[in-house]
Design a protein around this nucleic acid. Sequence first.
DNA 1: GATGAATGAGCGTTCATTCAT
DNA 2: TATGAATGAACGCTCATTCAT
Lengths: 205, 205, 205, 205
Amino acid sequence: MRANSGSGEQDSRTFTENARRAQIVRAAIETIGELGYARTSFAQIAKRAGLSSTGMISYHFQGKDDLMDAVTAAVLSTATGYMLPKIDEAADHHAKLRAFIESNLDFVQEHPAEINALLDIGHHRQATENPSVQSWYQDALSPIANRLREGQRDGAFGEFDPWIMAITLRQAIDGIHFQLAVDPETDVDAYARELVAMFARATSK
Amino acid sequence: MRANSGSGEQDSRTFTENARRAQIVRAAIETIGELGYARTSFAQIAKRAGLSSTGMISYHFQGKDDLMDAVTAAVLSTATGYMLPKIDEAADHHAKLRAFIESNLDFVQEHPAEINALLDIGHHRQATENPSVQSWYQDALSPIANRLREGQRDGAFGEFDPWIMAITLRQAIDGIHFQLAVDPETDVDAYARELVAMFARATSK
Amino acid sequence: MRANSGSGEQDSRTFTENARRAQIVRAAIETIGELGYARTSFAQIAKRAGLSSTGMISYHFQGKDDLMDAVTAAVLSTATGYMLPKIDEAADHHAKLRAFIESNLDFVQEHPAEINALLDIGHHRQATENPSVQSWYQDALSPIANRLREGQRDGAFGEFDPWIMAITLRQAIDGIHFQLAVDPETDVDAYARELVAMFARATSK
Amino acid sequence: MRANSGSGEQDSRTFTENARRAQIVRAAIETIGELGYARTSFAQIAKRAGLSSTGMISYHFQGKDDLMDAVTAAVLSTATGYMLPKIDEAADHHAKLRAFIESNLDFVQEHPAEINALLDIGHHRQATENPSVQSWYQDALSPIANRLREGQRDGAFGEFDPWIMAITLRQAIDGIHFQLAVDPETDVDAYARELVAMFARATSK
DNA sequence: GATGAATGAGCGTTCATTCAT
DNA sequence: TATGAATGAACGCTCATTCAT
């Protein structure tokens, strides 16, 4: 008898069980953020969640992959909720691009554990032939590429492949982690300003 | 007794002899490239290398870190040997930037296992706060940043932070792996051409 | 998760519950008693305890040292519980000295595995410079030395260094193991009588 | 083709091979003395002996047990050569007993590695059912017991079991190691004087 | 739901020993 | 003899998962 809901399943109990699931996901995020994926075990997560047994995690999730899917979804949801309003508020395509970069780096600064968890899981899965990798990565890039394409259609941007630009933009923002590894005192806002200027040129006519 | 050569030791035979070491490094590269760092164990490497036991790896290397150091050094050496001549041949700063991007992506296309291994090891070390991370990452970025700085000094490029541009360039090139994960049939040359145009604008005056 | 109780933890169940822990400690005592510390591995202990894997031992104890601490504590507790009443019953200092020697050798005869385990662990820790050695050895000798000192103060014994006499007494009793190795049919009671007479002279005025 | 000479074998090559054997035995003594038996491996011994391969040890000795037999014999021989003259010089039985104790503790002080090796090997083998244990231990105790018996016959000592007194004497002297473990600054000469006085009483009429 | 004991495969590493050269 | 590579079993320990209560 299991309460696990596979990724696609719809279940009437979904909402009542969400409390425990969310608690575990929260603990997983913090653990990965602090120790890294490689040192994160069910035992560490259970300890941080105040659970007396790792069996609780297996009970609520189909397995490690299922838990990591939930973590990924949770972080992406939080990040989107943080960034989207700021992008929507922006007046034009250029301002929206700037808002995307700045709000993304703001989020990195304010939610380091979430971001570390997301990237760690992503790196771990990239090598794996897990089919869910493609989808979440596409899901993350598609909105960016679409906005860039709209900007081109409206004449705000020059000619470039919007999909490759989206990848580059995504990777440029994630580059902050390497910079922070080299110098933890880095001014993230300055990094953001530099990227804004750089991509203004890169997307110009 | 032991064939291990500690990191600090100097041994003229390190690269010339020791076919076994090279064989193990090769097997490690292929294993990481195929399974990813997380699923790569001495047992997997030994199986691929046709060794009778994992003890053989411990015999030839001080430990897992030492083996991964050897893998990193081997891949970087191969990559540098491939790319440097093409960059040196290029006539001016713009051509060198183009040669860097193109030769790098050429190398990715021709040596996917090597590159996957290099990035996976890098990610794992970053996540586990291995102190050797900063140095190799700085070592990888410094030459790029220095060339960009020279280009600015010579008036070939506009104003930008060369260090952040180096990170972005590095990350943009590595973005090909995400693209290949989504679509293994991607035209890497087209990806290269797009990046060349993009960074021509990004570095322009 | 884990049933381990770290050395510093206080847990009222430590001795009352945890049948599994006791079972493992018992198996460890028997294994060390039979094979000696050097040939005692988790695999041997697990086999003797009927455990499915060595992981069960790691589950119940923090590590090999923790298990050996538990073995030491268990044996010392049993030995003290056996000997102390007999010593307390004895009327005067001479009778107490005799009771100490006799009850100690009685215990050796009746619990050979326990004693072998205790001495083997002690020797191993002394050889590996484990810092916990001094304390347990001092703990074992101090009560003997103190009783001897009291006897001197009360005029029952002559002049001698009570600490060195305590070491000699301890070592003389442990000498029975060498004797038993040479001749397993040795009359331990006779050995005890001889030591009693010998130390009566050695402690006399 | 092996050069090993089993314990009982007589071999015309015995003397030519003794150089390498002695070198290995010497390295083994130092290694056990410094690291203890548990941490002593063929690799450690070979390193200390300046050998390029542990195979050399296996070539010259039948196995680990054979090497340890050689170490034991070498140390006993050295110790006997050191002590016997001093005992022979002594005028009477009481003086000889004193000379035995004092020269033995002198030897302990001047050759700590040899003694540590001897005791470590002894402790390790006690638990093992190695038949060679009984013999060397009997060989070590018999001369002591015989001298005590002679002293009794000549009326110098009182009544006691000479064999048990020999064990006790042996153990009392070895007790210095526990004392040194507790306090490395212990005055060994004072320890010797105390034992001399103690055994003068213990062996008195 | 929740607990915690149990499972068994797997980890990197060390070891004494063997063997071709 | 001497070398050093190779062997394969064993080591303590961690892991995600299962299961009875």
